[in-house]
Amino acid sequence: MTQQSTSLLVGLLAGVSAALLLVSAGSPSSLSFILFAAAALPVLIAGLGWSNLASIVAVGCAMLIIGFATTPQAALVSAVTTLTPAAWIAHLSNLGRPAEEIGGPQGGVAWYPLSDIFINIAGCVCVGLVAVGLAMGYGPDFVEQLVDVFVDTLKHNNADYELSAGSLAEMKQFFLYALPTIQAAMWVLILLAGWYVASAIVRMSGRSKRPKDDLPSQLRMPRLGVFALAAGVAMSFVQGGVGLIGWTLIGAFGIGFIASGFAIAHHRTRGKPARGLLLWTAYLATVIFTVPLAFFLFLGLFDTARTLTVTGSGPNPKP
């Protein structure tokens, strides 16, 4: 079997797997979120371990299956939020150039920077969510209906639950801006985790072209991310769709800098006797109080970099 035929077959299998995961996630169950989050894995594995052709075929196959099984709209939403970003990330991960071109060792290969892959993940999430929001007509009316359903569900489970008109209005205003922010942040983390797991699977299979990246020392947002986050903050003060896009940017790039902050904490505590205690305390405090997120956000903001992985010489930070 030729390489092209193998890529086609792998792409078809990956597309079927991704489609089954996404269709199954549409059925209400306790596993829905896990299935939806795992849907990018088959496309990532096909692209990382085989070729761009395999990931492209996987995206097309999955869209066709989802379109027939559900609706064409669902297929498009899956494509812009999950399938296409996964194929793009896999493509970037396999890009490399001769290391000597950038002052590296003779005969080595410098791979596409992890920091640039990270900012591409954030950018893909923003584009996908904005496109879906525009298609769905996301806005005050949409959120009002959503909150009304949410409140009715609470009242159904607790007959004594009551909300004043002012509290209900505040809840709707909060959800209007919180939903795009939280969804963008979660989806960036999901795609990053999917890339990490898929890379590990492909390495174990022996098909990985790219060596293992050292996340603590390399997971950073480049300086361009600072401008994207600043633009989001500025846009958030504008009413309407511009403000909602701003909050989406804040969620996607803000969580990028927070993740960078945690990576910095992991890197700087290496070799320290109390490393485990410090890291567990940091994670626990973040989960309980959420306030430490601001610390890690600023830690990530003040340590922006573009780092390279060079085959044969390990992590090689470059400005």
Rank of each mutant, 00 (worst) to 15 (best):
V291Y: 09
L215H: 06
S24W: 15
L278Y: 07
L168T: 13
S93F: 14
G26M: 15
P105D: 13
L146V: 08
A198K: 04
R223A: 14
L224C: 05
L179W: 03
R268S: 09
A294N: 05
A110F: 13
S51Q: 14
V143C: 02
I65L: 07
A294C: 03
I201V: 12
L219A: 06
S7L: 12
L9F: 08
G49C: 05
T6A: 09
A259T: 14
R97V: 15
N158W: 13
A110K: 08
A263F: 07
T153K: 02
I250W: 01
G276H: 06
V310E: 10
G47N: 08
T309A: 08
G300N: 04
M136R: 03
V132M: 00
I56Y: 07
G243R: 09
V310F: 10
L163G: 05
V77W: 10
P222H: 05
P319F: 12
A90K: 02
T2N: 07
A305K: 14
S217F: 02
I245K: 00
T281S: 07
G123A: 10
A285E: 13
G314S: 09
L163M: 14
V125H: 04
K272N: 12
D152L: 12
F302K: 06
A184Q: 01
P85W: 04
M1A: 09
S55D: 12
A58Y: 12
Q73L: 14
A230I: 12
K212C: 05
V151L: 07
Q218P: 00
K318I: 15
G251V: 00
I34V: 14
T181Q: 02
F175N: 08
S199C: 08
V147G: 01
A178I: 14
A25D: 11
V59H: 03
G225F: 06
R268N: 10
V77I: 13
L9W: 07
A74Q: 11
S78F: 09
G137K: 05
E100G: 01
A305T: 14
D213G: 00
L244R: 02
G128Q: 02
L278A: 06
E170P: 00
R97G: 06
G15R: 10
A131V: 03
L21P: 01
R207T: 13
M171N: 05
F150N: 09
A99C: 11
V143G: 01
N158T: 15
M235Q: 07
V109A: 08
R220C: 04
L146W: 09
G194W: 03
L179I: 15
L249I: 03
L191E: 11
W88A: 10
A234F: 09
S260K: 03
S217G: 01
F36L: 13
F253L: 00
I182R: 02
A90C: 06
V287H: 01
Q106Y: 11
G49E: 09
V23S: 05
